[in-house]
Design a binder for these strands. Structure first.
Lengths: 237, 237
DNA sequence: CGTTTGTTTGAATAGAATCAATGCTGGTGG
DNA sequence: CCACCAGCATTGATTCTATTCAAACAAACG
């Protein structure tokens, strides 16, 4: 996935955006040379390791983020104190669009796999939005992507029994990974928070899949999927 | 809800938009007098009764819709053939934003309660979008609203046990209705499709709530809610 | 090397799905 | 006008599934 990613040493300022390895998949994809002149504030690069928060629910944010590498979870807590992961962000994705509407962040954003992100100050984005129409389409695409992902999350990962949910998640991960191998599968707790099941059920289901040869353990948290077999389980319910 | 709704006789053309009773809550809220001159195509009004489809998943749409009154469900079907209601639209809401990205509709939109909608041809919206910046904010608001509603749907209505889900849905309906009475509650089948439970479980849970005096039947599909009681059930899980 | 943190497994229980039957209501046509 | 029908709602009995509580285990870390 994202074959062309090329992370150089840390830099600041807009200069980097022009030559950014993932620009074509990021928010600034459609910008032209002249547009970058409008960026007068440094775009910082952040490197965060697993477990680190990017922002918190309720914070009055002053920046959006583009994820360059790694993975980030968006979490909402439930009335009873437990947590539910409502979306995952992968390289090229944008985080924190809600600040464009001067709203506080609506999730806790937490790093799941070591991440590199670009911090886009709100003023930069609003200025570009005002001066050039080329950002509009991309912004709309981002919003749309969030809606679509949310819908898939609901129908695919929060419907049906535990076996089906786990199978669909594994397939999703394998597909976006472009191979039948999954490295760095989530903790069982995160699996549960994604699928709306308990960690025990998540653990049991993974174990069951292993016994049924739907999953083969290649190493510590590294699996090979029997895609056809998983598809069958996924389609039952 | 929407106290000021005032549906005149059917009309066509843009003339009506200016004086529309729900304009301040709809997509064209921020438009100014001069902007309406840009609308050269008639805006049709549609009246559809319960059960009628507005559009179908996969259709290559040529219009967005603003809901003036009634209720509409957005449905996605699952691999196993059953259906899941992914969102509800109420007066002032917009349907079919995805056509702005030249994408086919992503749901089946079906009328739940007799509805009146305005059909906004794609060309009208894209033209306005090009000529005036005043639509951008509203569009972004609409997208944002869809995301937020999707997130709430997931955490509120698709998490926890059946009692909690039903309670939270009833509270949601009562709150958006602005009273502790709910008229025209969904069919049990729709309840199930919203909450990800079977129709039998939905029925049983409603019956249980009635026995526990959390709901009082006022008439055919017309209930009064014990809000505090429901809130207690909603918060447990 | 012991402590912490996450994983696995077991047994008991609670919850929901399933299958099946019955009841209710509004609409239709004789 | 009434009898019947179709569609939805309710209820029961049973089976299956997931949660809960508890314990043992494994790996990672200071």
């Amino acid at each position: 996935m994202a074959a062309g990613i090329n992370i150089q040493a840390a830099w600041a300022g807009a200069s980097g955006c022009r030559t950014c390895g993932i620009r074509q998949m990021a928010l600034f994809a459609d910008l032209q040379e002249s547009d970058f002149a409008l960026i007068h504030v440094p775009i910082d690069e952040l490197r965060l390791s697993a477990g680190a928060p990017v922002y918190h629910l309720g914070d009055q944010g002053t920046a959006l983020y583009t994820l360059r590498s790694g993975m980030i979870k968006l979490v909402q807590s439930l009335p009873d104190g437990s947590q539910r992961i409502v979306r995952l962000r992968r390289p090229g994705d944008t985080l924190g669009l809600e600040v464009l509407l001067t709203l506080p962040y609506e999730h806790d954003a937490v790093v799941v796999q070591d991440a590199v992100l670009c911090r886009l100050p709100l003023e930069v984005v609003t200025r570009l939005q005002r001066e050039t129409p080329r950002l509009h389409t991309q912004l709309m695409r981002r919003w749309h992507q969030a809606v679509r992902e949310a819908d898939e999350w609901l129908t695919g990962l929060s419907t049906g029994n535990a076996r089906g949910r786990v199978a669909r998640l594994l397939l999703h991960l394998a597909e976006t990974g472009g191979s039948n191998e999954i490295s760095d599968l989530f903790t069982r707790e995160d699996l549960g928070a994604i699928l709306g099941i308990t960690t025990e059920t998540a653990s049991r289901t993974i174990a069951e899949f292993r016994r049924a040869s739907l999953l083969e353990t290649l190493g510590r948290n590294h699996f090979r999927c029997n895609l056809d077999g998983l598809r069958q389980v996924a389609d039952q319910l």
